[in-house]
Simulated scan of single mutants.
Amino acid sequence: MNHDSDTLDTLDDAVAAQAFRRLIRHLRHRDDAQNIDLMGLAGFCRNCLSDWVEEAGGLDKDAAREAVYGMPYSQWKAQHQGDATPEQLERMKASVAKNAVV
């Protein structure tokens, strides 16, 4: 994709921030949507979002994860994350391979 002509870059930062917050709140509400399934379908998950927040320079890793999860990551994992099946891991591997930029 040519980012030079991407209309996303012309989106007002306040609008983009509001949409980002809505996405995060949606993912907090949908704690039944496992990260492994998000990775298998879309090649990104809550951890990716928190990594992107960290990379943007706002927070360290733990604080970024807490901002995305709405609680400490270890607490979220204990309450909501199950063990991944071999099938989920295989779907994730295939999906993440599509993330490679050529």
Rank of each mutant, 00 (worst) to 15 (best):
I24R: 00
L41K: 11
I36C: 04
V53N: 00
M71S: 03
L38I: 09
H29R: 12
T10G: 09
S5P: 00
Q88D: 12
H80R: 12
Q75K: 07
Y69V: 00
M1S: 15
L8N: 11
E87I: 05
H3P: 04
G70D: 04
R91G: 01
G82C: 08
A42Y: 14
A67Q: 10
K61Q: 14
L89T: 14
Q75T: 12
R91E: 09
H26A: 14
A100S: 12
H26E: 09
Q81E: 15
Y73K: 07
D60T: 10
T85G: 04
V96R: 11
T10F: 04
S5Q: 14
A56P: 02
C48K: 10
L59E: 07
L41D: 13
D83S: 14
Q79G: 02
A42S: 12
T85F: 05
S50Y: 00
L8R: 08
E90V: 06
H80K: 07
G58R: 10
D13F: 05
A14W: 00
H29G: 05
D83P: 03
K98P: 05
A78R: 15
D6V: 02
V53R: 01
V101K: 12
A100D: 13
A94P: 02
A16W: 00
N35C: 10
D31N: 15
S50R: 00
R91L: 06
M92N: 03
E55D: 12
T7N: 11
C45V: 04
L49K: 01
W76T: 04
Q79R: 15
I24Q: 01
D37V: 15
L23A: 14
F20A: 01
M39P: 01
C48V: 13
H26R: 14
A97W: 04
M1G: 13
A67M: 10
V53L: 03
A17Y: 03
V96G: 02
L59C: 03
D4S: 12
Q18D: 13
A17F: 04
R25H: 08
